[in-house]
Simulated assay, not measured.
Amino acid sequence: MLFGLLGNILTILVVWLRPHMRSSTYLYLSSMAVSDLLILLLLPLDLYKLWRPRPWLLGDLACKLTMFLSECCTFCTILHITFLSLERYMAVCWPITAKTLVTRRRTRALIGCLWLGAAVSAAPVLVMVGVEEGIDGGHEGELDKRECRCTHYAVSSGLLSAMMILSNLYFLIPLCILGLVYSLIGRTLWLRPQSSRKDQSHRHTVKMLGVIVLAFVLCWLPFHVGRTIFSLSLGTYFNLVSSVLFYLSAAVNPLLYNLMSARYRHAVNLLYGHGKFCHILFPRKLTV
């Protein structure tokens, strides 16, 4: 959690404090960093629920909002990776069209739409979850059995099943799109001469995004599989492993940027070198 928080905060600062880093690609990555930050901030609550699932002492509103925020950020991250990959496809395969369509202003507007779409998609969670009396697993003599969980209404009405289908579609459809997009990008770059400086830059960016997508698939596939089979006897243990990978995915992206992008490393060095990062953390000390 600490590693992920520091890495994602640094990613946001690098993009927004270094003007040359505000390309469409890094605008997407900084917005993803915000989503990953929110996911990681929910980790203590998830650990608390594992340690003591009942009684839930934070109230019905906190139960609904935390579950909604987790689902919203999950959808948002998937949408960001998909649209970022489509943007790279436009830049590589249709460069003239991309120069006209892909601008910073439109990218910011599209990112706002992605957040709105993710929030709308996650909205049913506000009805699905709530604080109810636990019906199993309680300790003998335990008086307060309030638990933050899926409500009986969500199960009986079929809302839980519908949301499970939506969640899986949110993973499977983008996965198919990503496979097609990177196949087309790879084919286009393979057929072009490697002497072009712009194509070399595209290759480097696509390699970085390819690693990010691979990490995304490896970390999130068990999470979605675990959701589907949670009712089986192995579901509890599988969900624990998939939850670890889910949070690992939110923490590992800044490390991948650092390993794969010399531009990112250079921007971080400039940020430290000019003291802007320290100025934000300790403004009074630096102004004295």
Results as ranks from 00 to 15, higher is better:
Tyr272Pro: 09
Cys63Met: 07
Gly130Thr: 10
Ile280Ser: 07
Ser24Ile: 01
Trp94Cys: 09
Pro55Gln: 06
Pro19Met: 02
Met163Gly: 04
Arg146Pro: 06
Gly210Gln: 06
Phe282Glu: 01
Leu17Val: 04
Arg197Ile: 10
Gly141Ala: 07
His20Gln: 09
Ala123Lys: 04
His139Phe: 11
Ile135Leu: 06
Leu169Ile: 08
Gly112Asp: 08
Val241Ser: 02
Leu143Val: 06
Ile81Ser: 11
Arg187Gly: 03
Asp199Trp: 05
Pro124Trp: 01
Gly141Tyr: 03
Gln200Ile: 13
His224Met: 03
Cys219Val: 11
Leu13Tyr: 07
Arg106Ala: 06
Leu10Ile: 12
Gly158His: 03
Ser121Glu: 12
Val15Glu: 09
Leu281Arg: 08
Met128Tyr: 04
Gly158Thr: 03
Thr25His: 09
Ala123His: 08
Ser30Pro: 00
Leu42Thr: 14
Leu57Arg: 06
Thr205Arg: 13
Arg105Phe: 15
Val127Phe: 14
Thr151Val: 02
Val120Trp: 02
Arg149Gln: 14
Leu57Thr: 13
Leu240Cys: 07
Trp115Val: 09
Ile111Ala: 15
Leu160Glu: 15
Met208Ala: 14
Leu79Glu: 06
Arg146Thr: 14
Leu45Cys: 00
Ser35Val: 08
Val241Met: 13
Ile135Gln: 08
Phe238Ile: 11
Gly141His: 10
Arg203Trp: 02
Glu142Pro: 11
Ser31Met: 15
Arg263Ser: 10
Leu240Asp: 04
Ser85Thr: 12
Pro254Asp: 05
Thr11Ile: 10
His80Cys: 08
Asn258Thr: 07
Leu175Lys: 01
His266Pro: 00
Ser167Cys: 09
Arg18Lys: 14
Leu160Asn: 05
Cys72Ala: 12
Phe3Leu: 07
Leu160Arg: 00
Val252Phe: 14
Tyr272Gln: 14
Leu61Asp: 12
Leu180Arg: 08
Leu47Asn: 06
Ile135Val: 09
Leu6Asn: 00
Lys276His: 06
Tyr48Gln: 15
Leu248Lys: 01
Tyr247Leu: 12
Ser157Trp: 02
Leu286Ile: 09
Gly137Trp: 03
Gly235Met: 14
Val102Arg: 12
Val241Thr: 02
Asn168His: 11
Ile280Gly: 02
Leu126His: 05
Leu5Phe: 13
Ile78Gln: 12
Leu38Glu: 08
Leu65Thr: 14
Tyr170Ser: 12
Ala91Gly: 13
Tyr48Pro: 03
Trp190Cys: 10
Ser233Phe: 04
Leu172Tyr: 09
Pro95Val: 00
Leu255Phe: 03
Thr188Arg: 10
Asn168Cys: 12
His204Gln: 12
His279Met: 14
Ile185Pro: 08
Leu232Arg: 10
Leu169Met: 10
Cys73Lys: 13
Ile135Asp: 03
Leu61Thr: 13
Asn239Ala: 00
